[in-house]
Structure formats: C-alpha cells, structure tokens
C-alpha cells in the first residue's frame, strides 16, 4: 500500500472489499480516500445503526445518530493508529456518541430514577430523605452506592437499563440471558436492592 502516486494507485471498490479491516483503516487514514471511507461505512453501517437504535428506540433518530457517528469516524481517521483494531475503534466512537446523546437526554434518567422510589414515605424524616434523594444529581454516586449491594450481573443489568436506557429484551441479548424473563428478574432484583439502598439513612444523609 504505497502512498506514493496516491491518486493514480487508488484501489477500486471491489479490491477494497478484499482488504482486511485494519489494512482498510490504514489506507483510509493515510489517504482519506472516499472509496476507502465508503468501504468502512459499508462494513459498519448496519452495526452502527443498530447500536444507535438500541439507544434511541426510534428509527429516524437512529439514522441521525448513525450519521453523526460516521461523520466522527471520517473526521477522526487522522487519529487512527496503525495496528489498532478498526472494529474496536468504530465501537468506541459509536459508544461515546450514544452515551453523550443520553447525557443530553438526562430527563429520561430523572424520570426513571424517580419512578424507582415508590415506597410509602409518610413521616417527615423519611420525606426529607426522599427529597434529598431526588435532588441528588450525581449518577456516579448513586451507581457507586448500588455497586455495594448488588450482584455483578444485577449491576450490569441495572446500568444497562437505567443509564444506557436499553430495553429489557436488548439487555437480555447483551448479557446473554436465556430469555427475557432472566433479564427482567435481574432488573427487578437490582431495583429492589436499589430502593432499599435509597431508604437507608446512611445513604440519604451522605
């Protein structure tokens, strides 16, 4: 893959199709050639789109999202390091973009976390704790606390459901559960433990 005489020696699309992922990425990074970028797009469009759909739950939004991911991929080709795995690199960009999208949709978080807390908190002290919990904006802190009380797989399901906003079915696929009931049980257990955690004075008064 000499870069000399680049314009004359650009491989055609059917030759590019035979390139390994990582060679293709090196070619695209060195030449920024449209055909090479198009080949990367062709190989990853389905995965990126479906990845985005997991987060957006909407086909049109997923198209917007996938387009932005590919724009970032093409723009970031200059930073691609020879020897890195293209699939991991694409994944990283898609993951970061989708999570940043979620951060902008933080109201989903608010909605979900508050819905967890349906316990009857009638007395004044408990109500103050509840309000304090609702004011807590640090998801990092909430999840760090959750980690102390949940099993590993429960915590994974919890994070995927409540931070990444994935559907129960998608969590079932990601965690390799036998069926959707398995994932739902994990989430329910995690939610129960999390609710108990919220009720605990030591957490609420932190």
């Amino acid at each position: 893959m000499s870069t000399d005489g680049r314009r004359e020696s650009q491989p055609s699309q059917h030759i590019l199709a035979a390139y390994g992922d990582d060679d293709l990425a090196v070619l695209a990074a060195e030449t920024r050639d449209e055909a090479a970028c198009a080949e990367i797009y062709r190989r990853y469009r389905r995965r990126v789109y479906l990845w985005c759909f997991r987060y957006t739950h909407d086909a049109d939004e997923a198209v917007d999202c996938a387009q932005e991911v590919f724009v970032r991929i093409f723009r970031g080709l200059g930073g691609y390091q020879r020897g890195a795995k293209l699939s991991t690199w694409v994944y990283q960009i898609a993951r970061n973009y989708c999570l940043s999208l979620l951060a902008r949709k933080s109201r989903l978080w608010r909605e979900r976390l508050q819905s967890l807390d349906r316990v009857d908190l009638a007395d004044g002290a408990a109500d103050r704790r509840r309000r304090k919990f609702e004011r807590t904006e640090s998801l990092q802190r909430l999840l760090a606390a959750a980690e102390r009380v949940m099993e590993a797989r429960e915590l994974e399901a919890f994070v995927l459901h409540y931070r990444d906003g994935l559907s129960v079915k998608e969590i079932s696929r990601t965690l390799g559960c036998d069926n959707i009931t398995g994932a739902r049980t994990l989430i329910q257990n995690a939610r129960r433990k999390f609710r108990r955690l919220v009720e605990r004075k030591e957490f609420a008064d932190e």
Binding site: T31, R32, C37, F74, R75, L77
Partner: peptide, 9 residues
C-alpha cells in the same frame, strides 16, 4: 463538521 480533504477524485 467535515474538515477533511481526500486524496482521490
């Protein structure tokens, strides 16, 4: 946002 130029056509 695309600030790249390509080496080809």
């Amino acid at each position: 946002q695309l600030g790249l130029t390509a080496g080809s056509s």
